[in-house]
Simulated assay, not measured.
Amino acid sequence: MAEKKLDGKVAIVAGGAKNLGGLISRSLAAQGAKVIVHYNSAATKGAADETVAAIKNLGSDAFAIPGDFTKLANVEAVFAEAKKQFGGIDIAVNTIGKVLKKPIVETTEAEFDEMMAINSKTAYLFMREAGKQLNDGGKIVTIVTSLLAAFTGLYSTYAGGKAPVEHFTRAAAKEFGARGISVNNVGPGPMDTPFFYPAETPDSIAYHKSASMNGKLTEIKDIAPIVEFLVTDGWWITGQTIFANGGYTTR
């Protein structure tokens, strides 16, 4: 039997229960990794348990663990449990995010604080702990958004909340690079998941589709292989944001 690329490796996937995170969890497991499936709240526990079961059916191992990653203590606790159960950690993938589509003048202070906490603070805290806990030669990947390369309104707190992650990534790539740890972002286009639709209208959905090269939304199956590449053969890439969106935006 051919050796799998991630045999003997351990991965934490933040937001790893469903949608893109769930597919990333399963794809890393298919390459041999043991996976810690993080989820945020009780509402997602069922999906997390299903993902763990799917991973075990693939012949790997996994466990699910909850935590609000806007709190450092929760991030630390998940990494600590990962090391307790599986030993060292090699891969840390963060898929956490929240969309708000709203004019700036209508955005409340509470909405701003929540969006910055979910899209920016969680990424920083996750990256911080990964930098402390990952084995030498580890890999860190954050899911951002292709709106980082867009000239548009209405997504100020979503794209704005993800924007700092690009510098967090560059800084971490420099700071962790001596240990052989690569740090990158993947910016999908609008994805055909339940995450996307609540903020949109039929007209805006049609526009988003029209902006890609084939008139379709990004699918999770378009993104998971890129994450898999970055944590395996693409290890020499670091400090980068890769826009994977069918031509939706570019720099």
Rank of each mutant, 00 (worst) to 15 (best):
L134M: 08
N135F: 10
A163R: 06
A130G: 08
I140P: 03
A150H: 03
F168L: 05
F151M: 05
L154Y: 14
A163W: 04
D136L: 06
T145N: 09
I140G: 05
N135V: 06
L147R: 08
E166V: 13
G160L: 00
A159R: 05
R128E: 14
V141D: 06
T169F: 02
K132A: 14
A123N: 12
G131V: 11
T169Y: 01
N135R: 13
K139C: 13
M127C: 14
G138R: 11
L134W: 07
E129F: 03
Y155L: 12
D136C: 04
E166C: 03
A149Y: 13
A150Q: 03
G153N: 14
K162L: 00
P164M: 07
G160D: 01
V141M: 07
T157M: 15
L125Q: 10
R128V: 08
I143V: 13
D136K: 11
G161I: 02
R128C: 09
G138H: 07
H167C: 05
S156F: 04
A159K: 04
A149D: 15
K162C: 00
G160R: 01
F168T: 00
L154D: 15
S146V: 01
G131W: 10
E166A: 13
T142E: 07
A149R: 11
T142Q: 12
G153H: 13
Q133F: 08
V141T: 10
K162Q: 02
R128N: 15
L147D: 06
A130F: 05
L148F: 05
L147E: 06
V144W: 02
I140Y: 09
G160T: 00
K139I: 00
F126K: 06
A130S: 11
Q133Y: 07
L147A: 10
Y158S: 12
V144R: 02
K139W: 04
F168R: 01
A149F: 12
P164G: 04
F151S: 09
L154C: 07
P164S: 06
T142Y: 09
F168Y: 15
Y155F: 14
T169L: 07
S146Y: 03
R128F: 12
T152M: 11
L147Q: 10
L154N: 15
S156C: 08
M127K: 03
E129R: 12
V144H: 05
I143P: 04
G160W: 00
F151K: 12
T157Y: 12
G161T: 02
G137M: 05
G138K: 11
A123H: 08
